[in-house]
Amino acid sequence: MSTAGKRILMAKTGLDGHWRGPTVVAKALRDAGFEVIMIGMARPEEVMQASIDEDVDLVGLNIGGHVDVAVRAIGMVRESRPEVPIFVGGVVPPHAKRKLEGLGVEVYPPGSQLPDIVAAAMRLTGAA
């Protein structure tokens, strides 16, 4: 299998526009051969709608705020596209990380290295 034609949705759940982390991750995923659809700061229902219309194989959420906002977005995506895996990055304090992992979501906090994130995307989309 390869990454050819695999599509990843990248969204920010908060209204915080820091782009340093997400942009580097998006470029690394593109360089690994993924088609990365970026939607910027999106409400949970916008994340859900884009995950449907764009027929993505993986949803990546950058969270910069409270974990409950991300949990709501995850719930909405799961409801409409239960088969699509989700991973999360950003400022995720340990208690939030535990909560997300409890939902079956992989979490990549600050300091995560790009090769690990790319490897996760390949594994989650079945490209590796």
Binding site: G14, L15, D16, G17, R43, E45, G65, H66, V69
Partner: peptide, 25 residues
Amino acid sequence: RNTGDHCYNVDHPDVVARREDVGLT
């Protein structure tokens, strides 16, 4: 930042969608 940076009140739909973030920063 949710309200201040964007000049939104808390009842703006973009803030309501992220109500738990309000007051975090």
